[in-house]
Design a protein around this nucleic acid. Structure first.
Length: 436
RNA sequence: GUGGGUGUAGUUCAGUUGGUUAGAGCGCCGGAUUGUGAUUCCGGAGGUCGCCGGUUCAAGCCCGGUCAUCCACCCCA
């Protein structure tokens, strides 16, 4: 939980609406309603009647009353909110503990965050984010390391992804060149939808937001961009020559591309239409898209924020960070079958139980196997074999060690590998070696 | 916040113009002469039809409300 004022104003207009608000402590719903009603003169005769029998008109009145009351309660009585992300509370933390922290400061954090949104595929009210940030350094080496972190993580998970990168400074430059720099946010959100709704609809949206036809014409070269990062860079440098801020953005991007070099499995891709809605980003912005599965949105996000701590009273503290959407990543891994079966198995070898004498003997072997660092268990009951094998199968146990009357006499153990169905007899002292 | 869809067995879903004991696949449990799973065959258990109310001789089916869930817009992880 955070103070509401810590959270508001950082996530853009839409984002602020999605913050879960919490009533002031000691404030009951009844007292909130009473206070709101008194102060708003909403409670007229018409509405009063609506509490009794309900005609359609009265129902509408009642709905209106409810809506306005909710709004009032929201506005007047809520002073705390649930974390919308981990970055803003992190900035607050850094400011509060600035004297105890050694800069540049790095931290990672895995915690739930909340969005007051209608749930949908890949969109949750509560979900986990895993954040990694570095604050107190403007070096682009931080950006480079974060891109490599994306690569490391998704290579480790065996998931192929594309890391999209852009720079807010380039976007600001485009707005500058258009002649309406103050419209950068509207312009950018429309540009962001370009690949989804197409050029015409995007232009329509810009016009609706008060962007002039002239400005729209001036940003037309953006739609014509194509080719590799190097090719697009040349085109952008020429087009945005008059904007020093855009030139800086392009230079930063060039450094990052260069320094990242080859990656293990992820692909780094420049996307001039990548915008991201969060207000606090000022430099690089990142987004990771899964190339497998059907997850509609991004699975990670991030970027550089030059002055997020400024609003909490600490100026000149630039930071950059990324956020992994744990639940979305989990969904993709589940959908694409990336969870190895042995991950679910807690046991590697099961000793079948043939009766008291055999079980007692297995108990000794069980101990040896465990001491060798191999997870093992002995089936607790001497039930029929089919049941014991099914148990091993269900649990994803790799081997079943069979020691019945015959094996006991001969001092051997039959080892069945469940995956292949192959079975072989080895001396009991070779058991550990055979299942490694 | 706006619009739409769906709630029936553990699960995925059928269920006719309202009409007797509400079905199927998968899963689960048991068995196929007692030492072998994932395949085959046979048998079995399991449902307050989301919840509340209404219409009707009769409601899983029609109507109203409510809750849950999913999808689209919007936005994002």
């Amino acid at each position: 939980m955070e103070n509401l004022e810590t959270l508001t104003g950082k996530y853009g207009e839409e984002g602020d609406r999605l913050i879960f608000k919490i009533l002031k402590r000691g404030f009951t719903l009844e007292s909130a309603i009473a206070e709101s009603v008194e102060s708003t003169s909403l409670y007229d005769d018409k509405v009063a009647q609506a509490f009794g029998e309900k005609t359609n008109e009265q129902r509408t009145n009642l709905d209106n009353l409810k809506r306005q009351l909710t709004h009032q309660i929201d506005r007047r009585s809520a002073d705390m909110g649930l974390r919308y992300d981990l970055t803003v509370p992190f900035a607050r933390y850094v400011v509060q503990h600035q004297n105890e922290i050694t800069f540049p400061f790095k931290r990672y954090q895995i915690q739930p965050v909340w969005r007051a949104d209608r749930p949908q595929k890949g969109r949750y009210r509560e979900f986990y984010q895993c954040d990694a940030d570095m604050i107190g350094s403007t070096s682009l080496l931080n950006e480079v390391e974060l891109v490599q972190l994306f690569d490391d993580v998704f290579t480790g998970l065996g998931l192929s992804v594309v890391v999209k990168i852009n720079d807010r400074k380039v976007l600001s430059g485009i707005a500058e060149v258009s002649g309406q720099p103050e419209k950068v946010v509207d312009m950018v959100t429309a540009i962001d939808k370009l690949d989804k709704i197409g050029r015409e609809k995007a232009e329509e949206e810009m016009r609706a937001k008060g962007i002039s036809d002239e400005a729209i014409t001036r940003i037309a070269p953006l739609f014509a961009l194509s080719g590799t990062w190097a090719e697009q860079r040349t085109q952008l440098e020429k087009w945005l020559a008059s904007s020093t801020i855009a030139q800086q953005g392009l230079k930063d991007l060039a450094f990052t591309f260069d320094a990242v070099g080859g990656m293990k499995s992820a692909r780094l891709e420049f996307d001039p239409t990548l915008a991201r809605g969060l207000d606090y980003y000022t430099g690089a912005i990142f987004e990771v898209i899964a190339l497998e599965g059907t997850m509609p949105g991004s699975i990670c996000g991030g970027g550089r924020y030059d002055d997020l701590t400024g609003v909490f009273g600490l100026k000149g503290m630039s930071g950059v960070g990324i956020s992994f959407g744990a639940d979305r990543i989990y969904d993709v891994l589940l959908e694409t079958n990336k969870f190895p079966a042995e991950l679910g198995a807690s046991t590697k070898v099961l000793f079948a139980n043939f009766g008291e004498a055999e079980a007692m003997h297995c108990l000794k072997l069980l101990r040896q196997v465990r001491e060798a660092g191999i997870a093992a268990e002995l089936y607790p009951d001497a039930v029929k074999m089919a049941k014991q094998f099914k148990y091993a199968d269900d649990k994803g146990i790799a081997f079943v060690a069979i020691i019945g009357e015959n094996e006991l006499k001969q001092g051997i153990v039959n080892i069945k590998e469940m995956k292949t169905g192959e079975q072989k007899a080895v001396k009991q002292e070779d058991l550990i070696h055979a299942i490694q």
